[in-house]
Structure formats: structure tokens, C-alpha cells
Amino acid sequence: MTTAATELPAPSVGRPPRGRRYRGGLLAVAGKALLRTPGRVAGVVIIVGFAVMGFVGPWLYPHNLPVNANAIYAGPSLAHPLGTDFEGTDVLALLVTGARYVLLSAVVAGFVAVVVGTTIGLVAGYLRGLADLGLSRFTDFALTVPGIPLLVVLSTVYRFTSPYMMGVVLGLTGWGGLARAVRSQALSLRERPFLEAARGLGLPLRHILWRELLPNIAPYVAMNLLLAVIGSIYAETGLFFLGVLPAQVNNWGVMLNLAVFSAGAIGSPQALTYLLAPLVSILLLTLGIVLVLDAVDEMFNPRLRTL
């Protein structure tokens, strides 16, 4: 074949081919994006720190935390860096052993919400027509179901000792907003020439949805995943704090509840560390996630990836 008209690259000058860089895959790109600024590094450190705490922490302590009747509401000391609670249990130990429940259920909730919301939003927005009508009504329904009262009702029949169950329920009540947003993105993307071309080439629906469409909204979805995680942390600690859910398990929300309602931490300075420990943990974790959010767009948008 002749190639009379050429627009070949200037071979020697300019940038060297750097396609290989991308073969490292998404992980390499993500790692690079995450470690590019001090803020993001701090965020990663915080999140990894909490993850380690949630994963390893419970093994460091006995199944039933020791109770020290001589040191009730003790202040910070060498033996109890964050003081003790109403029955003399070490607050740091409570914090560490309580992290797993909070983190696991929040992550599960985030994933469930994102998977359900993204799938429903993509399919509804791309297919339009009857599928859209049905799925949109379903989304509206999900949006109107009041999440917290539903949990209260459910807690009368189920005890939520498993963080997974807690996460699934939180996720299933929280995907509506994302589905709406993804649907509108898919609606506008489906008219774009590159998707028209994909249809014109006869590419199958699942390829178009997951390979062509999804990567274009991936930054948005990932951002929503992180926000959903934050939201779930607030929702569940809130529920436990309010005492709506039975305080059968050890977690940060239960700690808050006990600190305020049993120890009267609001009025007495004695139990201050008991109150502050879970609060600061939640804030710190939120901060870590917010710091990392900034890197998400860079991870998924090829234009922003630094070379």
C-alpha cells in the first residue's frame, strides 16, 4: 500500500514514545498520582494508618478487654494514654478494636452504593426508553425510602453485629443520588461522537457500557465512592450514638454514645479524652479521605496523568 501523504512523527526530536509507561497499569498510575503532593501523601498515610489499625488492631488485644475498677474515667497516663472509660477499660484499646467495625461497614457500604448506583445509572442513561423509565422510577423510590428510620425498624428484627450486614444495608439505602448523577452523565455522553462510532462499529452493549462509557465517568464514580465512605461513617456512628441500634458491639459510635449519655462527658472534664478519642478519629479519617480525593481525577483522566 502506498502512503503518499504522511504525517509521520518526527522520530528523533520531541518526546520518546512513552506508551510503555502505561503498561504498568492503573496501579502504577494511581500510586504516582497519590504520592505527588505532600497533602496527598498525608492523606494516604492517614488512611493506611487506620486501615492497619482496623485490620491488625483487634489481634493485639484480648477478646474481652480488661476492666480496671480502680481507674474509672482516669485521665491520660502511661498505662492508659487516652484514659479509661466508665468501667476502667483503656480508651485506646476501645478505639483500636472499634475501628474494624466502622471501617469495614463504611467500605462495604461505599462499594454497594457505588456498584448499584453506577450500574443502574449507566444502564438507564445509556439505554433510555423503557429501561430508563423503569430504573428511574426505581431510583426515585430508593431516594424516597428514609434510610435512618428504615434502619431503626430493621434493628428491631436484626441486631447488626456484623459490619458487613450494616454496610450492605447502608449501601442499599444510599445509592439513589449517585444513580441519578451517573444517569445524567451517561445521557450526555451517549450522544458523543466516539460512542456513536462504537455503536456504528457494532460493538456489543457490555463493551460500550463498561469499556467506553465507564472510564469516562470513572473519576466521578471514584470520588463518589470516597464520599459515600465518609457518609457511611457518619451515618453509622450517628446511629450508634443516638442509641438507635443496640450497643452490642464495640465501635466508635457506641463509645460516643456512652461518653455523652453515661459518662456525661459534655459536662465533666474527666471523660474528655473518652469523648474526644472517637471524634478526632472520625475527623482524621475524613480528612485523610478528603486529601486523597484530589488525586482521583488524575488517576483516571489520561490527560492529567503526569509523565
Binding site: A4, A5, T6, L8, P9, A10, V13, G14
Partner: peptide
């Protein structure tokens, strides 16, 4: 007749000699 080669980009502009020589 088409113009051969490709348009210059900032990084590939030679600093010495004629810029069009390539």
C-alpha cells in the same frame, strides 16, 4: 501536494539553524 512532515511543536523546534529544515 500535501505538505510533508508534521507541524512543529514547541519541544522539537531546533534552536540553531533553519527551523524548517526537517
Amino acid at each position: 501536494e500535501p505538505l510533508p512532515g508534521r507541524p512543529p511543536d514547541l519541544a522539537s523546534i531546533p534552536t540553531v539553524g533553519c527551523v524548517f529544515r526537517a
